[in-house]
């Protein structure tokens, strides 16, 4: 199956960004880039998680978030946040066709995670085609 692939350089760049995110906060234990239609592109996980399944799920939640925003007459969905008793999952659109998701424990607060995500997304958007 022909799928969106990133170059070796692109891959290295993504891994650097993921490393930085994890250095910025110990709470971050998973970062995944996937496509808007649910394919896994690249990731860094400190724990074992099913990346293919998560990639599909992130595309669903993001699409639902965008749809809900539209139905509620609100503009532009920036993030979808899943807040759990033992962690946070933030998902946001990266350029036209990619999705960035961050999985973290509750050791960081949402504000910090927001800013980590935002700066990572800026860097990635500038460097990924």
């Amino acid at each position: 199956m022909s799928q969106l692939k990133i170059s070796e350089n692109g891959e290295r760049f993504c891994q650097d960004v993921f490393d930085t995110m994890m250095q910025q906060s110990d709470a971050v234990y998973g970062v995944l880039i996937s496509t808007v239609d649910g394919h896994d592109v690249t990731r860094k996980f400190k724990r074992d998680m099913p990346s293919a399944k998560l990639a599909a799920m992130f595309s669903s939640v993001l699409a639902l978030g965008e749809t809900i925003a539209r139905e509620a007459d609100q503009a532009l969905c920036r993030y979808v946040i899943v807040e759990n008793s033992d962690g946070y999952i933030l998902t946001l659109k990266l350029k036209e066709k990619l999705v960035l998701s961050v999985i973290a424990t509750t050791d960081a607060n949402l504000g910090i995670l927001h800013s980590i995500c935002r700066s990572a997304a800026d860097k990635l958007s500038k460097n990924l085609r």
């Binding site: 199956m1 022909s2 799928q3 969106l4 496509t35 808007v36 239609d37 649910g38 394919h39 599909a56 595309s59 669903s60 939640v61 699409a63 639902l64 965008e66 749809t67 036209e96 066709k97």
Partner: peptide, 20 residues
Amino acid sequence: RTDTATTDDLAEVKDVTTVA
């Protein structure tokens, strides 16, 4: 609708696909 851009083989058939 929750259709988004297709990035795989399906793109030959369709520009968008339902993801939710």
